[in-house]
Structures are given as structure tokens and as C-alpha cells.
Design a binder for these strands. Structure first.
Lengths: 354, 354
DNA sequence: CTGAAAGCGCTTACAG
DNA sequence: CTGAAAGCGCTTACAG
């Protein structure tokens, strides 16, 4: 039976109440109140009586019931596979969220943040993602790594979702809105070369993820296009491996520019700038520094690091639009898109002298 | 009849599917999956079979149906009555949201952002708030102004909600977590007086809201306690009314300190600092400047404005905890709380010299 | 220990 | 032109 409201509240007026008051059936009330989309003929007098009764009773439709009967709830989920809670205002989560909210508002969708997921890189209990996510009509995913098996089930079920950021797992079947790291990274290398740099190091995380893979591919492509040797170009390292001594070695060996990458932890960037601080290296006078993506919010020496910015906000918005298309099955746009990054001049990159 | 899924998607598994697979009734499935709170005896073998079937099918409860059938869905809504979309990273919305997310995660709640509300100070269609909000177990509200009639209905219906920020509307029945502006503002005035300032102007928005009312009350209290005349103290103005000429007049008239307030638009602060820039007034040498709350993210002259900060993050967290208490009807805490603000020394306030 | 049934408030074929 | 009825997927007395 009915469960009874948790507390002693006045019952809200329902369509049934209106029907009783107007002397019609609840069906008719529903028809009239929902705007009669089926285009069925309704007597104007009935319409008026129903509307008046609704007004009189202060009727407001029960969204839950409406959504239940209509099998849609106009809610889009946002599930993040981030290692840390995105509390840092400079966290990449925030601009994405802004983009998501903007587009969602424009499309009349609410956004459900699965905050329960935060704090573990990948959900602990299997099935956790599935279990929560499907309460929404569709879901956006965000993170450096994904739980493949879970997403595969969603994919097989035709549950609509879009990943914010390129993904090549699951046979390339994951819909995404990504950033074109390859092109942006290649351009950055070419810019450095144009400034006279030929001894360059690209320091990236050991950890693999599409974003890192793409950046490396772009760096290699740019170097090759510029006729640079790529043998010592790429350095895979975690934070602890970037010591001052090592950086000293590069510089003494003729390296004039170092590129690093943005990651969710910012570990590589932090280790590198710490080493530069320790060595007292002037930048860009003694060494040009660039980053593929955004530096941690804490910044470095108050400088604007040269490189490029990832259009996270636009990615969020585009992801929402694509997701709504998928939910409605109306889309004509490709399910996998890369958006261009915007170059950042910065003041840590200079022409090589001497 | 059934409406059929919008797309040719495989239907989500329901309790009925599990029941069929496990060879039990849907009732039993419900009992087991909902954790058997009624404490009914269930055969362990049945339990296992049902859970396995649920796992196998990738079952996820239908939020809407669950909600409808009475239980709760562990979703808290967040509805903002902001004039502008909180895209500005310095917008007060963000720290509140962070606090909300943190506490929600800690309490195992997801957060539903009612983004549809954004863009109008107060909902256009009556019933708009009601219409959306009730999908969640409870809701947080946030904004300078509120739609009273709508909230009154929710109140009368015992729908659990908490406002982030003090509210005195509706006969003081609105649960809230606010900031103690009165005390913080009074302290700030007394700090200025202690530094030798006696001619002070407090420039506030024309527009009334609890935050503004409380700040003004605090300013007046502080001034009175310090034995200052309050006759010319408070200046109500909108941005356009704060001209350079007017500010010049104050300074020429002996005013040595100006206090302003944070609002969602930042209009007063912006107008004031623009006037100071136009006049080339040095600060704090020629004039001390303070703000009640946080300045716009854009800042001013790279200075830290003296005053106090509003504990928005803590307010968000506390609001979630209170709301969960209300939803569970378990709370013992007061339904209206004020949190203390933290003073900010800043570098725009100086001792008055001769 | 388990199941049949009512009911939450709607939408939507379908039958008058 | 209007109504009776099924159904959305659950929860919860109630009856075996």
C-alpha cells in the first residue's frame, strides 16, 4: 500500500483531485494539463473547467510520477574518475563542469553529480558505476582512466554516455569529445624549433592515458617534421625521478627547452619546476619551459607558462549536446570529436641566443 | 500502455527480471535488494540467488520508481536563484558547491544540480521550483532572493530543504546555514576605529537581501559601540551612482575609510574601485578600503582587500549535514545556524595618520 | 520464509 | 469528445 509520507504533511493535489472537482476523468485532466500533444479534440468548456479547478487547488504536477510514466527524467549524470576530490579551484574538473552546466541549462537538462565516486581513481566495488549512473537518462564520464568492463556493459545496453576526453578503449566504440592534443603538441614543438631550439626534452608521466599518448605523438610528429632527432626527446618519469641533478645534466648537455604535460596530479610539472628553483635556473633566459595543457593552479614564479590551453569548457558543452543527441537518438554529429586547443604565448619561452 | 524506450535500446533489467531469473517473486527481490530493513527472515540461499541474478543482469534500481514508491534516493538537490550563470570561477557559487560536494560524498549522497533554474533571478513560471525539486530527497537553495510562495508550499508540505545563507522570510521558518555578518561587520568597523578612522562610509547595494541587511546592522552596531555618529555612515547606491566626483567629495570631506560589500554582481565594489582608479587615489595611504565578503575574482590592483571572508565551503557542508538530518528526521541540531566569518587583514587598510 | 496485490501519480493506447 | 484500464518500477502491509 501507500507508504505514507515520512512526516505529517498535507497531501498535494493530484490530477485525480482535479478530475473530481471538475467532474471529468483523470485521463481527461492529464490530456488537458499536458498540453494535449496528441491533438485530440477537447471541448473548450471542459478545458476551462479543468484549468480552473487546477488553479483553484494550486495544482503542480508531480515530476517523479511524470518522469516515471514518460520514462525520461531530463537528468544527465556526470561521473568523474578522478584521483582526488576536485576541490582545487584550478582542477580541470571545474571548467568542464561549467561547460556541462551551461549546455545542460540550454537543453533543459539537470545535472546529477555522482559525488560518491570521488576519492578513488576507479570505483572500488564492481558494478558501482552501473548501479548509480543509470538513474540518469544518460551520463558523462571524465577521468584519466576508466573502468573498461563497466563501460562495456553500458555500451552493450545502448545506455547513452559520452566521455569528456578522447578514449580509444573498447575497440574505439566510446563516444567522446576530446582535445586535439596531437596537433597542438606538434605545433608547440615547431614553435620552439622556429625559435632556434633543437635540444629539447619532453618530460611526461610514466602512466599511460590517451591524453599522454596523444601529446607524445604530437611532440614526436612536430620534432620529425622539423627534422629533429627524436632519440632522446621523450623522457618518461614520475615526480621523484626528476631531480635537480638530472635537469642540470640536460642543461649542461645543451638542452635549451623542456616541455612537460598537465596531469590531474600535476606531479611532473611540480617536480620539474622545483628542480629549476633548486638550481636557480632563469627562465626563459637559460631554459625555455612549456606545458602541454594547464599548469597547476598554484602556478610557478607568477609566470604564465607557454604552451596551449585545453578547451575544457567547450568540451563539456559539446559533450552535453552530443549526449542529448544520443539520448534522443536524433544526432547527426559524429560520436567522436576532437576540439582544437588554443596556443598560449606565455613568458617562459624565448628565442635561443648564442 | 507502455511508451517504449525512445531508442531500440535493450531494456534495463528490473526487479521483475531478477525475480524471473532467480525463480522468486518480485516482492522478495525488492526485500533483499533494499537491504531488508523490515528485518524479515530470508533464506540465505534465496538471498544469494537474487544477488547473483542482480549482479548478472547488471541491475540498477530505477531512481524515479524508487522515489515514487516512497523510499528515498540519496539524492540531494541544489537549486540556485542566481542572476547570472555561476561561470565566474570567483563566483560565490563555487566554494559553496565544493562544500556541498564534500559533505554529500561523505554522507553517501549524490548532488542534483538544477541547472535549468539558472539565468533568471527568480523562476519565471510559478511552480517551477516545485516542479523540479521534488525528485530529490531534499534540496538546498542558494541565492540573494527567493520565491517565497514556492518555498512556502514546500514548507507546508514538509519537503525538507535548507537555504545556504540566512533567510528571515516566511515567518522565520526557513531552515538555513548562514554567515554571521552582523558580528563580522561590527568587528571590522571597530578595527577601523581602532586604527584611528572616524569618518567612514559604508557603501551598500540598494537592493535588499538578508546578507545586506545583516551587514548594515553590523556596521551600525560597530559604529555605535565605538561612539561614532551613524548619520552619514550608510550609503545606499547602485553602481552608476558611485561616481568619481562623489568619492572625491567624501575624501575632501574628511572620509578616511570606505567599506563596501560583496554581492553576486560585484557592482558596488567595481564602481567604487573604478572611481578610485579614476581619481588616482592611493590606497591605503589616502583612503582605507574594506569589503564585507570577498571581492570579485578579478581583484583590484593585485591587492588583498581587507575585511573578512565568508565560510562558504563550510556553509555548504553544514547545509548538507542539516539537510540529511531533516530528510531522516533525525536531527538534533538547530535548523538555523550562523557560522563565523574569518577576518582578513589585507593590505588596503592602514592606520590613519594625522 | 515467500508471494499476491495495492498503490504512488502520471501517460498513453484503446474503446466507446 | 471522454473514460476505463494498463503500465512505468518500485515499496509495503497483508496473507499465506
Amino acid at each position: 500500500m501507500t507508504k505514507g509520507r515520512a512526516r505529517g504533511a498535507r497531501r498535494r493535489p493530484s490530477q485525480t483531485d482535479i478530475a473530481r472537482m471538475a467532474g471529468v476523468s483523470q485521463t481527461t485532466v492529464s490530456l488537458i494539463l499536458s498540453g494535449n500533444k496528441s491533438g485530440i479534440a477537447l471541448a473548450e468548456s471542459t478545458r476551462r473547467r479543468v484549468l480552473e479547478a487546477a488553479e483553484e487547488l494550486g495544482y503542480a504536477p508531480d515530476l517523479v510520477a511524470t518522469r516515471m510514466a514518460a520514462a525520461r527524467n531530463d537528468i544527465l549524470g556526470l561521473y568523474t574518475f578522478t584521483a582526488t576530490f576536485p576541490t582545487d579551484i584550478g582542477h580541470s574538473y571545474y571548467p568542464s563542469l561549467v561547460g556541462v552546466e551551461e549546455a545542460a541549462a540550454a537543453q533543459g537538462q539537470d545535472v546529477l553529480l555522482f559525488t560518491g565516486s570521488v576519492g578513488r581513481a576507479v570505483p572500488s566495488r564492481p558494478g558501482h558505476v552501473l548501479r548509480r549512473v543509470r538513474v540518469a537518462d544518460g551520463c558523462l564520464f571524465l577521468g584519466r582512466h576508466i573502468p573498461e568492463e563497466e563501460l562495456e556493459i553500458l555500451l552493450d545496453e545502448d545506455y547513452p554516455f559520452v566521455h569528456i576526453g578522447r578514449r580509444d578503449e573498447l575497440g574505439g566504440r566510446i563516444p567522446y569529445i576530446g582535445a586535439d592534443y596531437v596537433v597542438a603538441s606538434a605545433q608547440l614543438v615547431q614553435r620552439l624549433v622556429a625559435l632556434g631550439h633543437s635540444e629539447i626534452r619532453y618530460v611526461r608521466e610514466r602512466d599511460d592515458a590517451p591524453a599522454s599518448t596523444d601529446r607524445e605523438a604530437g611532440v614526436l610528429r612536430g620534432a620529425t617534421a622539423a627534422g629533429l632527432s627524436t632519440s632522446d626527446l621523450v623522457v618518461r618519469a614520475d615526480g621523484a625521478e626528476i631531480t635537480a641533478a638530472r635537469v642540470r645534466g640536460w642543461i649542461d648537455g645543451g638542452v635549451s627547452a623542456v616541455i612537460t604535460e598537465e596531469t590531474d596530479t600535476g606531479a611532473v610539472f611540480t617536480a620539474l619546476t622545483r628542480a629549476l628553483d633548486e638550481l636557480g635556473v632563469r627562465c626563459p633566459e637559460e631554459l625555455s619551459l612549456a606545458i602541454l595543457g594547464a599548469p597547476p593552479a598554484s602556478g610557478w614564479r607568477g609566470r604564465e607558462i607557454g604552451g596551449f590551453t585545453v578547451p575544457r569548457r567547450e568540451m563539456g558543452s559539446a559533450a552535453v549536446r552530443l549526449l542529448v543527441d544520443l539520448v534522443n537518438d536524433t544526432g547527426t554529429e559524429p560520436h567522436q570529436q576532437l576540439l582544437a586547443c588554443r596556443p598560449v604565448e606565455g613568458d617562459t619561452i624565448a628565442e635561443l641566443r648564442g
